[in-house]
């Protein structure tokens, strides 16, 4: 394991744990942003430059800010009455069981042996290639995605406006 990967994975997981444990919601949202930046750097290390920058633009730039605005609109930064649900141990046990199962599968699986061959080769991912694929081979999914984003935007506005309209 290289040093940079160790630092980045430690940053990512540590910030994710902090985001899930912190009492103040704004701090949680900012820890989520740090975790997503760490993940974007892991993507850059994997050779997927475009995805790394998209991750920073979409997640760190948009989704984190959206979460901060939602906290603002729900006045959630005030201390909630309770930190966790009535039965936190069951959730933690389920998560631990999932992790143990996944880790056991990853370390013991024989299907992953075939994937080790390409580890040394240098993969160059040019943004030009990604754009070319998007407008030729994947043009229909791209259009559907645009439709989905438009529908989600309109739906989000309608859902968030509904109550106020009914109260008039």
């Amino acid at each position: 394991m290289s040093l940079s990967f160790a630092i980045l994975s430690g940053l990512t997981v540590g910030a994710a744990v902090a985001a899930m444990c912190w009492r103040n919601l704004v701090h949680s949202a900012l820890c989520l942003a740090v975790s997503l930046v760490g993940l974007a750097l892991v993507y850059l290390g994997l050779g997927a430059e475009f995805i790394g920058w998209v991750q920073i633009l979409v997640y760190v730039g948009a989704v984190s800010i959206l979460i901060v605005f939602a906290i603002l609109l729900t006045r959630g930064a005030e201390a909630p009455p309770g930190r966790v649900t009535f039965a936190p141990w069951s959730g933690l046990i389920v998560a631990l069981a999932v992790f143990i199962t996944l880790a056991w599968t990853v370390t013991k699986s024989k299907a992953l042996v075939g994937f080790a061959g390409n580890s040394s080769g240098d993969v160059s991912l040019a943004v030009k290639d990604v754009g070319g694929k998007l407008v030729t081979e994947y043009v229909l999914p791209l259009q559907v995605m645009g439709l989905l984003l438009t529908a989600a935007l309109i739906g989000a506005v309608i859902i968030a406006l509904h109550e106020r309209k009914g109260r008039k």
Partner: peptide, 25 residues
Amino acid sequence: NPLHHYLLLSALLFSVGLAGALTRR
């Protein structure tokens, strides 16, 4: 890094997210 390091990081991140989604109010 070998592939399984990335998969273990991903599994850890998934478990942290799952624990948070199940336990936070």
